[in-house]
């Protein structure tokens, strides 16, 4: 019995750790898409900026907390930069520019070896309180820390969207001509939403680096963006609770498929492709038949006209 617990506990910790990172990552997207209606197809870029900035600054001698803050700020700043040319235009343009940006960023991470060590990746950076916490308990500690951060982000976002500010965001999502006819600076709100969403992704990036202890450009493939999309849509667009649950479901499902992998006659590249096919199909089917998601706030989204 005890042996089983010894086996299951680390496994469970891993799922919860990854889920909490992805929940935060997806909460950023939910603010952008769920509450403001912005289509960001390059969310992973901000995850990467957060992770790389944190890690590289820390490696060059800055304190960990300062590095994390810089990572968050830089991710937010790039959200700002991408928002400027696109957010005055139709929603398609942000989608195009973000997707392009995430690809270009990955090329830069791969090719500018003097800065990022290219495909070798970076490891050997500091983790929070690593000298204080004994190694065998470290993941448990990390889990507690991450859940606490998730809690802070979650309740802050809840507070945000239930404020007059959130009301404006929701009105933009529904029909931006209404708030602009009433005197709201729609562009500025969209920009703020993108900055905050990107900054949250930056934070998730730093957390991901702490968990993995090693990052390289392949950690930040486009699929991560679509994982976040699935999480948001699965849990119900415009529901923060749903997003957290969605993250948990997706990672439980992914770790489940790892067991199945041994029994399916797929080669490794096929398994990856197969997963992407599932993600793509899920995205299509959910948007076609259940846009309110499985746990979506029905009354908020089911009333489509």
């Amino acid at each position: 019995m005890i042996e089983y617990i010894d086996m299951i506990l680390p496994y469970l910790t891993t799922i919860l750790l990854v889920s909490s990172i992805y929940a935060i990552f997806a909460l950023g997207l939910n603010l952008e898409w769920g509450f403001t209606g912005l289509i960001n197809f390059g969310h992973v870029a901000f995850l990467a900026i957060g992770a790389y900035t944190t890690v590289m600054l820390n490696m060059s001698g800055y304190s960990l907390i300062l590095s994390v803050i810089a990572g968050i700020a830089l991710a937010g700043f790039f959200g700002f930069l991408l928002g400027i040319p696109t957010l005055r235009l139709r929603e398609d343009y942000l989608a195009i520019v973000t997707i392009g940006f995430s690809e270009v960023l990955r090329f830069i991470l791969l090719n500018e070896e003097w800065l990022t060590r290219g495909s070798f990746g970076i490891h050997g950076f500091e983790r929070p309180f690593q000298d204080v916490i004994p190694y065998q308990y470290y993941n448990i500690f990390l889990l507690l820390l991450f859940v606490a951060i998730l809690g802070i982000i979650y309740f802050s976002l809840e507070k945000l969207i239930h404020s007059p500010y959130g009301r404006v965001l929701k009105s933009i999502r529904e029909d931006e001509s209404v708030p602009s006819a009433l005197g709201k600076n729609v562009f500025s709100y969209k920009l703020q939403s993108l900055i905050i969403g990107s900054a949250i992704a930056g934070l998730a990036g730093a957390m991901l680096a702490f968990y993995l202890q090693y990052i390289n450009p392949f950690t930040f493939k486009p699929i991560e963006t679509f994982n976040a999309w699935i999480i948001v849509i699965l849990g119900g667009t415009a529901s923060n609770k749903g997003t957290v649950v969605g993250a948990l479901i997706l990672w439980t499902f992914f770790s489940g498929t790892r067991f199945i992998e041994e029994y399916v006659p797929f080669e490794s590249h096929q398994m990856g492709a197969f997963r992407m096919i599932i993600i793509g199909l899920l995205l299509m089917l959910l948007m076609m038949h259940k846009p309110e998601g499985i746990f979506g706030e029905r009354e908020e989204l089911a009333l489509s006209d």
Partner: peptide, 25 residues
């Protein structure tokens, strides 16, 4: 329009990965 855009990116993922699945990357 946003719904259609998201469906189209889903379709993009499916198509591309079918190619990878069958013929490799």
């Amino acid at each position: 329009r946003t719904t259609l855009i998201i469906i189209s990116i889903g379709l993009a993922l499916v198509l591309r990965n079918i190619l990878i699945f069958v013929w490799g990357g």
